[in-house]
Amino acid sequence: MDVYFFFEWLDNSFLATMSKAYGGVFAVVQMFHLLSLALLGGTVLLADLRLLGVMLRDVPSRVVVASTQRWFDVALIGSLLSGIFMSSAVALKLYYNEMFWAKMASFAIGLVFVYGIRRPLLAFDHATLSPWVLRLVAVTSLVIWFTVAASGRWIGFS
């Protein structure tokens, strides 16, 4: 499956015209991307370190998970929208960037994990779940989102 056509389309789209013509607009959008990254990473860290028993041990893990989920969604939407806009500025270059595809792959893996597995699982009473499964889920989540963020930053360097 070749998706080059999508990048070609993005490169010719209205978004690309704007992101290429106005460096200032691109910069502002990138800042939203960064702020979303901070929020997303913060919620992931809090919830997963709680599941691992590192942080907030005296707050029920159900409360921590419920409170961070909402803001995770906000951060995800923010980074997704700003990310698409940023991609449009360098669409054709990204197609050949290995790190970009590493990020997209880990991002897709993360989406399936969060909405397909982690959330449905954590909707059960945590006390009835195996502590080892909870720990594995937390470590997996941390590894996925670290990989998304780190490979994302490396797109610019590679």
Partner: peptide, 10 residues
């Protein structure tokens, strides 16, 4: 930023 600003945001 995810550690510092993430905690601060919360």
């Amino acid at each position: 930023l995810m550690v510092f600003l993430g905690m601060l945001f919360m």
